[in-house]
Amino acid sequence: MIYDATNCTLGEGPLWHPERKELFWFDILGKRLHRKGQHWQFDTYVSAAGWVDRDRLMVASARDLFLFNVETGETERSLCPLEADNPVTRSNDGRADPQGGFWIGTMGIKAERGAGAIWRYYRGELRRLFPDITISNAICFAPDGATAYFTDTPTRQIMRVALDADGWPKGTPEVHIDLTRERLNPDGAVVDAAGNLWNAQWGASRVACYDPTGRFQKAVGFDGLQTSCPAFGGDDLTTLFCTTAAEGLNGDAEGRTYAATGHGPGQAEHKVTL
C-alpha cells in the first residue's frame, strides 16, 4: 500500500524514529527531508539520517554531517565536513550502527566511476573506510554489531565485513550476496532482528529477504519500479517501508513511499552517539 503519495524524484534514506514513532525519508534530488504531511527544504543534497535524541537528527548532506531539529525546523550546527572540497560528489546511503557510529556513503552526482567512498562518524571522528566506490548502498548491520554490510551497486555484490568492539572494520570485506547471475541491482538495505538482510533492488519493484548466510528467502513486491531503500517501523517494527524514485519514469506509482505489514520484526534504529 502507499504510505505517502508525495512524489520523490529520488526517494531514499527512510528512518523510523523509535522514540517519536514517525518515519522520516529524503528526496535527494529534490533536496528535501520528509515526514508524513510535512517536508523541509535544503539548499544542497540531503540523503540519510540517524537519530540523536527525540528531536534531533544527524543528517548527511553533500558537504557535511549536521544536526537538524525536527521540532524547530532549524539546522543547529555542522558536526564535520563530508567531502566538502569535492564538488563532484554527494552523500547517498547511510545508517547508524549498534555501537552508536554512523556510516555514510558518497558517490558522484553523475555516478562518476569510483568517485565515492564509505565513511564512518564515531564520537566526533570521521574516518574513510572504503574508497573508490561508484554508487554506495546497502549499509546495514547485524543485530550483534559484529558485521556490517554494504554494496557498490554496479558490482551487483553485497559485501560483509567484520567489526571490532567499537564498530570499526577489521579484516577484508567478503562477498555476502552475489546478484550478478540474476542481474539485480542492490540498492538500500536493512537487517531485521533475526539477522535477515532486506535489500531494495533498483528496477525490480521489490525488496528481497536473505537469511544470515546470504540465502534468498522471499521478496516483497511494491508498485514503484525503482525501489531504493527499506526500513522497519510501526509500533511492533513489523511494517516494511520502502522508498522509490520517479527519476526518468512516468506513472502514478513512481516516487511514492510504500508500506507492507507483517514482516520482520526489524531492529529498532540505533542511536547516534556524538
Rank of each mutant, 00 (worst) to 15 (best):
C209K: 02
G94P: 08
N199W: 04
L129K: 11
W40I: 10
G167T: 11
F232R: 02
V88T: 12
A259L: 02
G11Y: 02
G167K: 09
Y122L: 15
A204G: 02
L225G: 02
R127N: 13
E71Y: 04
A142H: 13
C80Y: 08
M58N: 04
R20A: 12
F216D: 13
F102D: 03
R181A: 15
F130C: 02
T273Y: 10
W119Q: 00
G105W: 00
D53P: 01
G195I: 01
L184E: 08
F66Y: 13
S47N: 11
R256D: 00
A253M: 07
E247F: 13
R183I: 06
R206C: 14
P14C: 10
D97R: 03
P98A: 07
A208V: 12
R215K: 15
C8I: 06
Y121W: 15
G262K: 05
G266I: 01
R156L: 06
L65V: 06
D252H: 10
G124Q: 05
W168R: 09
K36E: 11
S47A: 15
G37N: 08
I135C: 07
T6A: 15
T243H: 09
W119I: 04
A200I: 01
T213L: 11
D27A: 05
A146Q: 12
L82G: 01
T147F: 08
R256N: 06
T89A: 06
L240T: 07
C242R: 00
L197K: 00
Q201A: 09
N196C: 15
Q201R: 13
E83D: 14
D166S: 15
G188V: 00
R113E: 11
Q99R: 12
V272F: 10
G171E: 12
I177W: 00
A253E: 10
T172E: 07
A138R: 00
A231K: 00
S91P: 05
A62G: 04
P186Q: 06
M1I: 07
C209P: 00
